[in-house]
Design a protein around this nucleic acid. Sequence first.
RNA 1: GGGCCCAUAGCUCAGUCGGUAAGAGCGCACGCCUGAUAAGCGUGAGGUCAGUGGUUCGAAUCCACUUGGGCCCA
Length: 916
Amino acid sequence: MDWSKTLNLPKTDFPMRANLPQREPEILRFWEEIDLYRLVQQKTAGRPKFILHDGPPYANGHIHLGHVLNKVLKDIIVKYRSMSGYDAPYVPGWDTHGLPIEQQVIKSLGLDWRKVGPVEFRRRCKEYALRFVEIQRQEFKRLGVRADWEHPYLTLMPFYEARQIEVFGEMAKRGYIYRGLRPVYWCPTCETALAEAEIEYAPKESPSIYVRFRVKDGKGLLPSDAAFVIWTTTPWTLPANVAVCLHPELDYVLVRVGKERLVVAEVLLPSFLEVLGVEGGEVEARFKGKELEGIVLEHPFFERDSLVVVDTYVSAEQGTGCVHNAPGHGEEDFVTCRRYNLPVISPVDGRGYFTEEGGPFAGKFYLEANEDIMAELRRRGALLAAGRITHQYPHCWRCKNPVFFRATEQWFASIDGFREQALKAIRSVRWIPAWGEERIYNMVASRGDWCISRQRWWGVPLPVFYCARCGKEIINETTIEHIKNLFAEHGSDIWYSAPLEVLVPSGLTCPACGSKEFTQEKDIMDVWFDSGSSHWAVLRQPSPWPDQHWPADLYLEGSDQHRGWFNSSLSTAVAITGQPPYRAVLTHGFVVDEEGRKMSKSLGNVVDPQEVMTKLGADILRLWVCSADYRGDLAASDNILRQVAEAYRKIRNTFRFLLANLYDFDPAEALPYSELLELDRYLLMRLEEVKRRVLRAYEEYEFHLVYHSIYSFCTVDLSAFYLNVIKDRLYCSLPHARERRAAQTVQYRVLLDLLRLLVPVLAFTTEEIWRHVKVVGEKPVSVQLLDFPEPDDSLLDPDLASRWDKLLRVREEVLVALEKARKEKLIGDSLEAKVKLFVKAEELEWWNAAREDLRTICLVSQLELLPGESLKVEVEPAEGQKCARCWMYSPEVGKDGDYPELCPRCAAVVRELSSR
RNA sequence: GGGCCCAUAGCUCAGUCGGUAAGAGCGCACGCCUGAUAAGCGUGAGGUCAGUGGUUCGAAUCCACUUGGGCCCA
């Protein structure tokens, strides 16, 4: 007789193996068909809004793990909010202008951007950007991210560009925009000014030279044959030298070295003498740097003076403590020399070649001029020492070539104009984690003015005209309004395609000279100005995204954006509204490898999300994001993903088992709490605790706690405990038996609660599970249309908790004893055992009342309680025969005439079944 | 060189205001089961809480420094 046919064994179509790479695309198609985003928005309409404003990724290249981390975190938050009482519309965006795209277009199309002209060149850039917008859109969708993918915002949209012009106009109106000659980072290869954000530091070998500057007027302090010694690694900047800078508080000495009398910082004298290879060095006089201020020196090879100046940035760690200053080629030099009204000499052109101002070096590429200049110094005996040095030097982030400072006409946003307001705004924002506040505060407090002009084509033009006669720049409400409207209608391409009379508002006259002839600005805006205007373009109403509001409730990006997007957005918002564009800012760390090192092609430790999706599935990536604490760096490797995949299988299989045990359960038949067994109530209490912990974790953006709580509940509470222990009830009882329905009631509740709590994380799998869930009443078409479970105080019972904690502690003792018996070959399956439990005599009554519960959770056939000294467990073989149906041992087996193989319980069940 | 951050078993994480001998799961080893079966269960071995010094009756926890790593800047 095959008694298994009389059992209620689990039954389900839900597959054990996920096969996510195949199944996920089907589910994506389903979401498209039902237009899930729209359905959710319809459902949540009218609720309070939660606006997560998407930071636009750059439309260049395929997505990497960093994108995955960022977009999945956003998706988790949006889904959590829309299941928890909010209306959380999510408009994705892309950053589509800028140098990297220009360079890709030049490289991949072999396009000579000087020849095709701006209109055609910009058309190609736009095509390129849109191609990658489409690629990334598909890749983001593939991750299961729910967004308004059909209506994203792109920084190249005419509406967006018009709003950006508005931002510029508002800032100009408040006097925050100015034009000035300043040294800026300049890339001679790309022929453009670069923002600080576009600079990378890399090792570079440079000359290291010590140069003598003779005293022309020692102001009575220094003899006429004295000289200062400067140290520099950029000989080519010497033609632009106008000063030598000392630290005001540092001690300087006049020393005799051979026939020379030289001035250097005292602390640096030993290292300086070592470089010269000279012994001794007799100190003749000693001065504070500030005492020497105003002494006049001779330029080493030009007929020009060089002034001794002082500033506190001078370092006493390297060189001579005397710093050669060329205000046209250095930020600090510029600032110092401006105080002394010294001229800004800038003898190098945009391609890096010396101009006529460079005298004998005219026509030389600046780096090649190093040799000529050193030769000139040597000829004049001014070169005291020369060597080579490898140091960290700024390079262009795109072309990787060295850059330099060059004084040029640039457009700036004055940070000083609104710095105090910005700092105050920072204090009013919630920064998550909290240390983000200090970080951005220090940055804003110390940053210089923002150079917003770029000598490029792929971007939003600076909306400025110049008087053709007197050169006066013209930005006013009329011109801004006119240009804004033109851009809104035609896009900024019109700046390059339309004649000037279309661009200039009719009737415009120069306020300075009255001329009616104008020229237009050729520079475009820094891309950080583009993305930094997104809050105004997208959130400010009315806009093509009417469900947004200003300010955003949350910005969420990597911690590098404290200086990037958080900063540029804050600047534009504070400048034109006085308020921050976000109420809260959440940052995550960076993806690193298992050893904590950054991912790089050269290290060969890059994990490709496309590959993970093809091999394991997007839900594995999503679970990975959720499993780790994103406040620090996130480690990713094959090993770590394998572990996440294992955890996924465990969670999936737990759901499968729940579904399988509910195959004949009608949720309408769920039993009330009062009719459940104590074990059932205990489990529901555990569920309640987990639920609360998970809800709190979502609310506090601590998603790794969501993962660990749920995973641990599946493993420890469900799989190893409850689900294992209730099998006898589920399988062996009559189908409609109350105790069986009780176990199903609990499992159904667990299923629905866990399922909903996991929807923001396991986007695909929860949808798949949902298709196998029966509900009372109308069933929503997607699991994402459900709401989160809410706390239920009625499930908490402290007395029950303490009683069962006690039982579970004893269970652990019993399991150890059973394992020992198994080792001794006394038993195999735990049902083959009888447990003798010795407890204190005075507690015997309490334990006897719990005897059946204890036997059940230990999964043994018999459990006997005996008085003893202290808790002790003994194991012996179970009495009687094994029931062929439920596999429990009982002395009663064999006593039933009809069913001699069965225990009395099973005999009764089978008798009832066969009588139907 | 400066600002901010991270460091608890091989991996991912707990560890409340400083307080019994530092916890979980996975992985691993060794078993059990074959009615969750390309599943399920049990037991066990793994830790100088990065290091050093300090505060304290007592430190994974507080302070200082060091090392390694990350982001941003110079």
